[in-house]
């Protein structure tokens, strides 16, 4: 009886691990990237690390839904994502929350690095109803901009009383990552579900 208690629970969990983690591991081990996917540039990779350590994923998902499931495409968030879209992503940032919108294709919706910089400095300067935190520590306020400085034009009343707002390298990298988030290329792995099946909202797949 006691031996059973030490062996069986672990065996059961191990089997669950094989099914839920082991099989996906085998399935995707050599999974090729989507043909349209390009690896991150060094600046984008740096920006992604900032995205991770500032915890952006706690409010933003990166996994648009199929139209049969949610109106993500209608909102301009893009087609349903596939496993091949994520091969360069580590750690994964799929997210479980949409306090803010899905960002998997934010670069296609909002390709302007300048917009992202203003939005990071003070989200409410460009989106009045936003409850996103501001990230002033990614910027500095200088009396005058230097020759290599990226000046961020913040609309009143959100800018500083005097001086100019200048983006730090972290802000530039993060904005480059966001502006580069574009998975709108056609997907090889779609559709995930068989065409023969009805695509009713809420229907079983």
């Amino acid at each position: 009886m006691i031996r059973t208690l030490f062996v069986e629970p672990v065996a059961i969990l191990a089997l669950a691990g094989v099914v839920l983690v082991g099989v996906p591991w085998l399935l995707y081990e050599d999974h090729p990237p989507e043909p349209g996917l390009t690896p991150y540039t060094p600046e984008q990779a740096t920006g992604r690390a900032t995205y991770v350590d500032l915890g952006c994923a706690y409010c933003h998902s990166q996994q648009p839904r199929d139209p049969s499931y949610a109106p993500d495409a209608e909102r301009g968030w893009g087609r349903a994502s596939t496993a091949g879209d994520y091969v360069y992503d580590s750690p994964h940032q799929l997210g479980t929350m949409r306090t803010g919108p899905d960002l998997f294709n934010i670069g296609a919706r909002q390709p302007s690095v300048d917009w992202h910089l203003v939005h990071l400095f003070q989200p409410r300067a460009v989106v009045s109803w936003s409850i996103m935190p501001s990230y002033p520590f990614l910027f500095e306020v200088k009396d005058a901009a230097g020759p290599d400085d990226r000046v961020v034009t913040v609309p009143a009343p959100w800018g500083p009383a005097t001086g100019v707002v200048v983006a730090r390298p972290e802000a530039l990298a993060l904005a480059a990552y966001l502006a580069g988030l574009d998975h709108t290329y056609p997907a090889r792995d779609l559709p995930l579900r068989s065409k023969a099946e009805p695509a009713a909202v809420g229907g079983a797949p």
């Binding site: 839920l20 983690v21 996906p24 995707y28 999974h31 091969v87 994964h92």
Partner: peptide, 11 residues
């Protein structure tokens, strides 16, 4: 890695 990491994550 990738989506497998998401599976391991939520498992």
């Amino acid at each position: 890695f990738g989506v497998e990491q998401a599976a391991a994550n939520w498992w």
